[in-house]
Design a protein around this nucleic acid. Structure first.
Ligand SMILES: [Zn+2]
Ligand SMILES: [Zn+2]
Ligand SMILES: [Zn+2]
Ligand SMILES: [Zn+2]
Lengths: 140, 140
DNA sequence: TGCCACACGTTATAGCATAACGCAATTGAT
DNA sequence: ATCAATTGCGTTATGCTATAACGTGTGGCA
């Protein structure tokens, strides 16, 4: 369910933006992406946001709501939630010290939230789960 | 666990901001709060943000990360997670049509996320769970 | 009295996101 | 081939969200 749209070939701008996110070790804000792509001709925020919109649509990128920043999807190859690379709701653990983000999926959590929604007649469209804290390295 | 700080008497600004949130039927942004309090002498965003910081600290208000907006806590009287009004991690279902927000708590979800964190050595500080979608009225 | 903690007020600035316009390339009928 | 519709692109301007930095005033307390 909720399978992301199949990714057609990326445009030049989409490729550049995805490249920045793939190489980053932490979430990156839209304006930081812009700065990193000035040498490639990027001049305005909309160039970034338009590429991000598509990448989000393709399921190749996630937005971290509590950070106003973006990450490349870390588990597109996972088979756990159905055919191919699609995935349902995913959770993020964000280290407030080093910035690293872990992306994971928990069926039971998904199931419980869906259960609540069904019971209340609420129709979910998109769910964000973000745990802020300290990663194992930084908590030591 | 994670019991909020006991709320001392609120200051004038804190009372005004909390009043706006209590009377609202949907999340309210900081700048909207500012506008609604101009007649009471509010002139600058910081007056709102400072009051909000305290109210968040007291556990009387929640921030919705995916909306950049705030709501009064809807279940301070609940006894479900320990003594008094304190609560652990809470989830929100946000209707994208009418704006209404439902606040709820699910032990099992909490437990699963804690389990993941323990297993990974991640030390959670604050967790956000926000389901965007359509409420029962709007989905009909 | 002097000190400290805290709330408050003000101005300025930083950071995040979209509206509105126009142009160019692509696609897919007719 | 030609027209229309779609999509991506570039630019300018604007709006929304959040904090930095400075100064004032007040109450508690050694
Ligand atoms: Zn992913
Ligand atoms: Zn870390
Ligand atoms: Zn609450
Ligand atoms: Zn609704």
């Amino acid at each position: 369910m909720n399978a992301p749209i199949s990714p057609p070939a990326l445009t030049k701008n989409q490729t550049l933006v995805f490249g920045v996110l793939s190489e980053a070790e932490a979430p990156v804000s839209a304006y930081t992406i812009l700065d990193r792509l000035r040498d490639h001709g990027f001049r305005a925020p909309l160039q970034v946001y338009r590429a991000l919109d598509k990448l989000l649509e393709f399921g190749m990128v996630h937005r971290l709501e509590s950070l106003n920043a973006f990450v490349a999807c870390a588990h597109r190859e996972s088979q756990c939630c159905g055919a191919g690379h699609g995935h349902g709701t995913v959770a993020f653990a964000i280290c407030e010290s080093c910035g690293q983000v872990a992306e994971f999926h928990d069926h039971e959590v998904d199931h419980r939230l869906e259960g609540w929604a069904r019971q209340k007649g609420f129709r979910p469209v998109k769910t964000a789960i973000e745990i802020r804290g300290l990663c194992s390295s930084c908590a030591a």
